[in-house]
C-alpha cells in the first residue's frame, strides 16, 4: 500500500492579539503532529474541543498555513504551496465541513451545489445534469432533489448532499469534519455506512475528525488522539481500543456511557478543566488533569514511545492498569 499523506512535525501557529498593555504573542494550535495515511485507509482524529483536530485537517486541505514541518501528499510538499497550485489539488483532496446546512449556500439549488466543483475546476465539457443525477444516486437521494434548495431538505439529507459534493471529482482523500455531529443515532448509522460503502467502491482514503469514540472504533483503521494540539496516542485502532496506554485515551473511553444501566464502567474522572493553550502546562501537558500524575510528570516532557502497533506519550503508561487491578 502506498502512503497517501505523510505529515511530519506539523505546527500551525496563530498570532494572538495582545491587550493594550500586553504584547502580541503566538499560539500553536497544532504543535508538532506526525502521522501517515495510506491509500484507501480510514484514519480517525479524536480529541475534545480546542484540541486542534479541525486546525490540523484544515492545514492538510490548505485552508491554514502550516508554520513548520512538512505535509507530503504522494511525495509532494503541500506546505507553502501557492493557492493557485493548491486549487488544482483540490480535485484530489476534498473537505466536508462540520455544519451541513451552513456549508450549503441557501441561494443555490442542490444541482448547482453538487456540480459547483466542476465549474470551479473549469471542467465545462461535462453534462452537469447527468453528473447531478449520478452523484445523487451515489449518495442515495432521489433525482428530483436536484431542483430543491437547502432549506427544503433535512439535516441528514444535507449531509448526503455534502458527501455528493465532496466526491464529485473522484478524490483520493476525503477529510470529513464531524460528519455525524448532531445527527440522531438512526441516521448516524446511515451516514457512516454510506461513507464505508463509497470508500469500498471508490477506493478513497478518509480522514475523519470526531469526538465520538464509538464511531471511530467501528469505521477506522488507525486512530490518533489529540490533546492541546499534540498527539498523545496513535496507532492501529483495534490495538488502541484493546489496550489504551495514555490515561487521556482511557478517560475518553471511560467517558462513553453505555446504554445499559448495569454497565460496570471504570470511571476515570479527569480533574478540572482543559488548560488554556496560551498557558501550556510544563512537563507532560496532561498532568494537570491526570488522575495518575506523579512528580516526574510535572517536570519532564515524556518521549514518544512506540510499542507494537501503537505509540504514546506518557511516563507511566501502566499506572492506570495497577489502579484498575486495585478496583477489581
Amino acid at each position: 500500500m502506498n502512503t497517501l499523506l505523510d505529515i511530519s512535525d506539523v505546527v500551525v501557529r496563530f498570532g494572538v492579539r495582545g491587550g493594550v498593555f500586553r504584547s502580541a504573542g503566538t499560539i500553536d494550535a497544532v504543535s508538532g503532529v506526525s502521522l501517515k495515511i495510506e491509500e484507501g485507509q480510514t484514519y480517525g482524529i479524536v480529541g475534545e474541543s480546542g484540541s486542534g483536530k479541525t486546525t490540523l485537517a484544515r492545514a492538510v486541505a490548505g485552508l491554514h498555513h502550516a508554520s513548520e514541518g512538512s505535509i507530503l501528499y504522494l511525495g509532494k510538499e503541500l506546505r507553502n504551496l501557492p493557492e493557485t497550485q493548491f486549487r488544482k489539488l483540490r480535485r484530489e483532496i476534498v473537505m466536508m465541513f462540520q455544519d451541513p446546512i451552513g456549508s450549503l449556500s441557501p441561494r443555490l439549488s442542490i444541482k448547482s451545489l453538487i456540480t459547483e466543483p466542476f465549474r470551479i475546476q473549469g471542467m465545462t465539457d461535462r453534462d452537469l445534469d447527468a453528473e447531478a443525477r449520478r452523484l445523487l444516486q451515489m449518495v442515495g437521494l432521489p433525482p428530483e432533489f436536484a431542483a430543491r434548495y437547502p432549506y427544503q431538505i433535512s439535516g441528514g439529507q444535507a449531509r448526503r448532499v455534502g458527501v455528493a459534493r465532496a466526491l464529485a471529482l473522484d478524490p483520493k482523500l476525503l477529510i470529513a469534519d464531524e460528519p455525524t455531529a448532531g445527527l440522531d443515532v438512526s441516521i448516524q448509522g446511515e451516514m457512516l455506512n454510506l461513507l464505508a460503502r463509497l470508500q469500498d467502491e471508490l477506493g478513497l482514503a478518509i480522514m475523519i475528525i470526531t469526538h465520538n469514540l464509538n464511531v471511530v472504533r467501528h469505521i477506522t483503521d488507525r486512530v490518533g488522539i489529540m490533546y492541546l494540539g499534540k498527539l498523545v496516542e496513535e496507532g492501529d485502532t483495534d490495538t488502541v481500543f484493546a489496550s489504551p496506554q495514555h490515561p487521556y485515551t482511557l478517560a475518553l473511553l471511560a467517558a462513553n456511557p453505555e446504554p445499559d444501566p448495569d454497565a460496570q464502567l471504570m470511571r476515570i474522572e479527569l480533574q478540572g478543566e482543559p488548560p488554556s493553550i496560551l498557558r501550556r502546562p510544563k512537563g507532560c501537558e496532561f498532568h494537570t488533569r491526570c488522575p495518575f500524575a506523579q512528580a516526574r510528570c510535572a517536570a519532564e516532557v515524556p518521549d514518544w514511545q512506540v510499542k507494537g502497533a501503537a505509540a504514546h506519550r506518557c511516563h507511566f503508561p501502566s499506572a492506570w492498569e495497577e489502579n484498575r487491578m486495585e478496583k477489581l
Binding site: 438512526s186 464509538n214 464511531v215
Partner: peptide
Amino acid sequence: ALLECDPGH
C-alpha cells in the same frame, strides 16, 4: 431499534 443503532451497544 434505537438501542441497536447505538454504536456503543
